[in-house]
């Protein structure tokens, strides 16, 4: 099973981006946002707390049986330690309660849901991750591998990914100001478009002097400096995000 790798595109993430690219049989590249050590630690703590709570409930309930309850309690302990993650990952599509709280999920390396084999492997090898003490091997492995995989993930071929939708540009307060769109005088390349749109999205967060200073760098394109340069860039950005003066006729 070789790692799905898409040919580099203009959208290729920077090398340090925490994403994993998966090429599907449909020929499109999907992006998985792999989760780092900290959210996973929190998820493990939540799962641990839930298990501990369940054990105490079981202990109270089984203590009513007296000596007879000791055996069932040990079986509960066994199922909790070894079965809990596997049962949730298989029946709930890769999500334990802890992972659910942190909006995480286990998937196969190609983005498909984990099956029993993968889940059993990654959770059996939790023992190896724990060694020599306190998940040292697992943390080391997470820090050293590109997709934050602990040893169990490496053997099972799984990754832990974020499931919550990333905040949109609108939610981040990034919006191109509403100014009349102006078509660019020359065709612009993709990264040039990005720079202009990025400028427009952030322009309101800078002091006007700083905006004018930055816009001055694009004098070659806008043919103007100062506030006029800023305004012309905003017009271009408005055009680049698809705004038009009047609703254009739909072309086939």
């Amino acid at each position: 099973m070789s790692r799905a790798k898409a040919p580099p595109t203009e959208n290729e993430a920077l090398p340090f981006d925490a994403v994993r690219r998966v090429e599907t049989p449909e020929g499109v590249t999907l992006t998985l946002r792999v989760a780092g050590p900290l959210p996973r630690l929190y998820a493990a703590l939540v799962d641990g707390a839930i298990r501990g709570f369940a054990y105490s409930l079981a202990a109270i309930a089984l203590s009513l049986l007296g000596d007879l309850g000791e055996g069932p309690f040990l079986v509960t302990l066994f199922l909790g330690e070894w079965g809990y993650p596997v049962i949730f990952e298989v029946f709930r599509n890769g999500v334990t309660p802890g992972k659910s709280a942190l909006k995480l999920k286990v998937v196969n390396g190609d983005g498909t849901p984990v099956n029993l084999t993968a889940s059993a492997l990654r959770n059996l090898l939790r023992v190896a991750d724990f060694m020599p003490v306190g998940y040292a091997a697992g943390v080391l492995s997470i820090l050293l591998t590109k997709d934050f995989q602990r040893l169990g993930d490496l053997v099972a071929g799984t990754v832990v990914v974020h499931t919550g939708s990333p905040r949109s540009r609108d939610q981040l307060g990034l919006r191109v100001p509403d100014v009349p769109p102006v078509p660019p005088p020359v065709p612009l390349r993709a990264h040039e478009q990005r720079v202009i749109v990025g400028f427009a999205e952030r322009v309101e967060t800078w002091p006007p002097e700083r905006a004018r200073e930055l816009a001055g760098m694009a004098r070659g394109l806008t043919g103007a400096g100062g506030q006029e340069g800023v305004n012309r860039l905003l017009g271009l950005a408005s055009w680049l995000v698809g705004r038009r003066l009047r609703a254009p006729e739909e072309r086939r």
């Binding site: 055996g71 040990l74 066994f78 023992v127």
Partner: peptide, 26 residues
């Protein structure tokens, strides 16, 4: 009751040992 307790212990302990033996083989 001791039989049952021992059953629970064997499950918890012995199956756990088998799993640890496997995993630590890594």
């Amino acid at each position: 009751s001791t039989d049952l307790a021992m059953f629970g212990f064997y499950i918890y302990n012995n199956v756990g040992i088998a799993f640890r033996t496997f995993a630590s083989g890594l």
